[in-house]
């Protein structure tokens, strides 16, 4: 019996993804999130109406992998670009894709103010508690005691302050309509994240405000663990500080 036949297909790579092999390290969460964004764009049939804003950091090349129009922003400035694109093209779906250094450190002002203005955009926030691209330095979201290239003995609160829960902060703003924290470490988590992304993209046409989706992620090369160990470490250590679920839905 030939199972491998298009009539029996249950899952295939969405055509909204390009054929390029992604540059991410094996097991990196970015790949899964990219795939989910592309799947949502595919299923909503909005490939011609979506403009992505890529960040600086590992996901700087997101534009190579999702086959839509993209602008690549300076570090932290993606929400400013997205603001202008959405204001000038209100019938387009506009999203930013940002890491924790981009969104929670250098781009704090742009992020908070875009959310506070209630821009009708989607902000996808990849939080892996580390600067991946530059070689594993401390991020604002790095956990207390977590070792990084710039906190080799572990993050110290007296020296570095507290891990920043940006998503909680953004949920407090009147401009946000949907703020949720998800992950992509298991089948169930992936499905929930996709559902959240779909909802966020739909929100951006309802003039409700900004949708923020934090995806608590792994950086196995930065964390110096295998992908599977990273997932387990994330559940055990990241989730207590960054708990899963909706923070706001209105």
């Amino acid at each position: 019996m030939n199972i491998i036949d298009s009539a029996n297909l249950v899952y295939r790579k969405t055509p909204v993804m390009t054929d390029l092999t992604m540059h991410y390290c094996p097991g990196c969460s970015h790949g899964v999130v990219h795939k989910l964004v592309a799947e949502v764009i595919d299923e909503m049939d909005i490939q011609d109406k979506t403009i992505g804003i890529a960040p600086v950091g590992c996901a700087v090349f997101a534009y190579k992998y999702i086959d839509i129009d993209w602008q690549q922003a300076a570090h932290g400035r993606a929400p400013a670009l997205a603001t202008a694109v959405k204001r000038l093209l209100p019938d387009r779906y506009v999203f930013t894709y940002q890491g924790d250094g981009d969104l929670a450190a250098i781009g704090t002002a742009e992020t908070i103010h875009a959310c506070n203005r209630g821009e009708n955009i989607v902000i996808i926030f990849i939080n892996n508690g580390i600067y991946g691209m530059t070689g594993g330095q401390m991020a604002p979201t790095t956990l207390d005691g977590m070792k990084t290239a710039t906190s080799p003995s572990g993050r110290s609160v007296p020296l570095n302050g507290y891990p920043l829960d940006m998503t909680k902060l953004l949920a407090e703003l009147d401009g946000t309509c949907y703020v949720t924290r998800q992950s992509v470490h298991s089948l169930g988590a992936v499905r929930k994240t996709k559902k959240a992304l779909r909802k966020a993209f739909e929100n951006s046409m309802l003039e409700k405000g900004t949708s923020v989706i934090e995806v608590v992620s792994t950086c196995n090369s930065g964390w110096k663990m295998t992908p599977d160990e990273s997932n387990k470490w994330m559940v055990e250590n990241m989730f207590p500080k960054y708990p899963m679920g909706d923070l706001k839905d209105r």
Binding site: M1, I3, I4, D5, N8, L9, V10, Y11, R12, K13, T14, M17, T21, M22, Y24, P26, G27, C28, S29, H30, G31, V32, K35, V184, H185, S186, L187, V190, R191
Partner: peptide, 22 residues
């Protein structure tokens, strides 16, 4: 059993899944 859990979690979108009822 063609549940596609492998494909959903694959970061490189390199798994295609098929399923039949027998």
């Amino acid at each position: 059993v063609g549940c596609a859990a492998c494909a959903y979690v694959c970061p490189d979108a390199c798994i295609t899944v098929y399923k039949v009822k027998i």
